[in-house]
Simulated scan of single mutants.
Amino acid sequence: MKLNYMECWNGAMVILRDHKEAILAIVGVFVFLPTLLMAQFVGQPPLEGAADLNAITAAYSTFFSENAVPVILSNLLISFGGFAIFLTVAPSHNGTVAENLGTARRLFLIFLVANILTGLVTFAGLMLLIIPGLYVACRLILVPIIIADHGERNPITALKESWNNTIGNGFSILLLVLMIAILSAITVAVIQMIVGVVTGLATGGAGWPLIDNLVSALGGAAVQVLITVIIASIYYELTGKGSEVDEVFR
């Protein structure tokens, strides 16, 4: 089955509409809050004066060594939240938020291992050229929702199923994800710029870091939710989950 962009987008909006309360609850606790706390209390690596790749690498290395615990914990929480959203929107699940969180907890290690394997395969593709790496990543993009939908406990099987389900659609998925990522990044950057200008004018140039961090965290959470429901919609469309794809997306 060839990926239809309009059907995929409409399906994502249906998924978002049907699960918005559960998604908002999960993303608020496990994505937005950790992101905001990290931005407010830990911040970013100091890159001022870092003129080359070695200096930037050193800055990130120092930052991570000094903040390893909060960085790891926040990323684990955000990853857990993302996986819980996949469970919420998976066609085989219709449980409560608490039930989905419990299932996510039991499958989270499998999800992490599968992500590591996906990263390794993608990295191997990137070593060849950028495009092959991105292509491989898009062929394996369905791994999280396959684990969520099937309760799959073998990461290798999840990778194989994603690869099989995306046959003939690797570059179509790549183009779709790139378009959404670029448009989302531009939108968030424009909103952040506008908020920065307003807070700067209101405070005589000092700005309000909490407001800036709040907007940044909200933007990041919104983009993650959008990408997640797009991936879920791709899965619905390419696998024909339900009885008929048009019935699933009506």
Rank of each mutant, 00 (worst) to 15 (best):
F30P: 01
Y60L: 12
V121L: 15
G168S: 00
A51R: 07
I194A: 15
I180L: 15
E66V: 06
N115R: 06
L33S: 02
A90F: 12
L178I: 15
L3P: 03
D212W: 00
P70V: 11
A12W: 02
I191Q: 11
T35K: 11
T118L: 00
N100I: 01
L174I: 08
L183K: 09
L175N: 10
W208H: 08
W208Q: 13
I194C: 09
G81C: 10
F111P: 04
L214K: 02
L128H: 03
L73A: 15
F123K: 03
R153V: 12
G102D: 13
T203G: 06
N10F: 11
A84M: 13
G119A: 14
A189T: 15
E7L: 01
D246R: 05
N169T: 08
V177S: 11
A202Q: 13
I186E: 00
F111H: 12
P45S: 03
V121E: 08
K160C: 09
V198S: 12
Q192G: 14
L53T: 13
A84H: 09
E247H: 11
L210Q: 07
E66D: 14
L76M: 14
C138K: 06
N154Q: 07
I72G: 07
G43W: 02
H150P: 00
G49Q: 07
F83R: 03
N94Y: 02
V195Q: 07
H150V: 12
